[in-house]
Design a protein around this nucleic acid. Structure first.
Lengths: 141, 141
DNA sequence: CGCAAGTGTCTACAGGTGTAGACTGGCATG
DNA sequence: CATGCCAGTCTACACCTGTAGACACTTGCG
């Protein structure tokens, strides 16, 4: 479950993530700044997302109130993984390399990324040292 | 030029990248380990890639020899950019965060990424200091 | 010379996506 | 009660992608 979503689908479920839940009209309004879509179009999109199992609705009077069934982070992870597999054969460092070369990373981004990386590394180091007790020494001289 | 490619399209052009150029039959053979596709299917795929402008062919006797018109790195960059825009609204740090949280990054990957990052930062720092010398406080000469 | 083998072309179809009009039924208001 | 607004449903259509069969043409081989 929780397949990859297209840009438009992301925008639609994005409105739901922002608000917690929303009617078709509210989603349509929430999309407004970016796209002008007919109400029925939004309804179709939501129905299809429901078929895919990523959103659900409940009745409220004569209208439906949709809510997301998957979190943003879940979708993100699924999609990043699929993307890296698809395009880079699962090779994350290569992807990072292209990313850094693509002129879409600002110095400030870089700082943030380094921080994240340090955190993640600390985490892994902790795990690794626990592993070492069981596993024996690593290959690093 | 050089839109995003699907997984299958990546595999097809991947054969061309590997070999420099190839006939339909060669591409079909090159795909073999992964997918069994009819010759006409491969031919269709190549024609469509040609329409998109990412490959071209020349005649050699009665067969076509296809070659890539874009490099792997170009495609990678285009696709990473499109992906980050589509899924993360262009927010690279967020993507990296999800990436690191997605359990697909090994300690060794982490080391490589940190190195890349350091290099890139050094590069940006150089550029920044040059800018400062020329640019000073305001941006208008 | 005639035919098999190999090659490109055309056409087709199913499934997904973006987009929306036409249709239907209920509810509020005059 | 009648009428129109508003919400959901159905149907449709164009375009992209994956897949491939039916055809036509060329050429090497017997």
């Amino acid at each position: 479950m929780s397949r990859s979503l297209t840009k438009l689908q992301m925008q639609v479920i994005g409105v739901l993530w922002e608000r917690g839940e929303a009617t078709v009209a509210e989603v349509q309004a929430g999309l407004k700044p970016n796209r002008e879509l007919a109400r029925t179009t939004v309804a179709t999109l939501l129905s299809r997302l429901e078929e895919k199992g990523v959103v659900a609705h409940r009745d409220r009077g004569r209208e439906y109130v949709y809510r997301p069934l998957v979190t943003r982070v879940e979708i993100h992870r699924t999609m990043v993984r699929a993307f890296v597999d698809r395009v880079f054969g699962g090779d994350v460092p290569t992807m990072v390399k292209e990313l850094l070369g693509s002129e879409m990373v600002e110095p400030d981004d870089l700082r943030q990324i380094r921080t994240l990386l340090a955190e993640r590394q600390a985490e892994l180091d902790r795990t690794a040292s626990i592993d070492n007790e069981v596993d024996g020494p690593a290959e690093d001289p």
